[in-house]
Structure formats: structure tokens, C-alpha cells
């Protein structure tokens, strides 16, 4: 399955890109699977804190992902 991903802040910085299209080899993945997938794909994310949004909606519970969904990885930041 193909998903479109947008990375923000420190996450984009850590993996060196802002957007990409990724192929996931899972029939019906959810946001928990995605977290595992991203950490496998980018081990540098292991100690980073981020939230996942699916189609511009922040995922609170485990959310099912569909083909061509837009996934965003949002880190918290506190600067002011």
C-alpha cells in the first residue's frame, strides 16, 4: 500500500526530508503499525517524540490507514 508522508520540525531534520511516498507491505495497517514501521525505517526516530495525523486529523486512538492517505509526523516543540 502507498502512503504520502509529511515530516515536521525535528523529525524532518532527523531523517533529512520533508515529504515522501512510502510503500507499506501490510494489508490493513493502523497508526500503531505505522509508528513501528517508521522506527524500523528510520532508527533515528526511536528516541524522538511525535504524533501521527491521518488526513489532517490527529490520531488519538489507533487509526486504520488506507491507500493514498496523507500521514503527518508532528513533533512537539517548546521554543518561544
Amino acid at each position: 500500500m502507498k502512503i504520502n508522508v509529511i515530516y515536521f520540525g525535528m523529525i524532518a531534520e532527523a531523517i533529512g526530508k520533508n515529504v515522501e511516498t512510502l510503500q507499506i507491505n501490510s494489508i490493513q495497517p493502523n497508526t500503531d503499525d505505522l509508528t513501528t514501521f517508521f522506527i524500523q525505517q528510520y532508527p533515528v526516530l526511536k528516541n524522538k517524540s511525535f504524533k501521527i495525523a491521518v488526513n489532517q486529523q490527529m490520531a488519538t486512538n489507533n487509526t486504520v490507514i488506507n491507500e493514498n492517505d496523507e500521514i503527518a509526523l508532528l513533533p512537539p516543540f517548546a521554543g518561544g
Binding site: 524522538k48 517524540s49 504524533k51 517548546a78
Partner: peptide
């Protein structure tokens, strides 16, 4: 939005 603070020193 962010229920938990990130690990100390990580941001």
C-alpha cells in the same frame, strides 16, 4: 494534542 512531555533534553 500532546498528553505527555517529550523525554527531558530530547527537544
Amino acid at each position: 494534542l500532546f498528553p505527555e512531555p517529550p523525554k527531558a533534553g530530547s527537544v
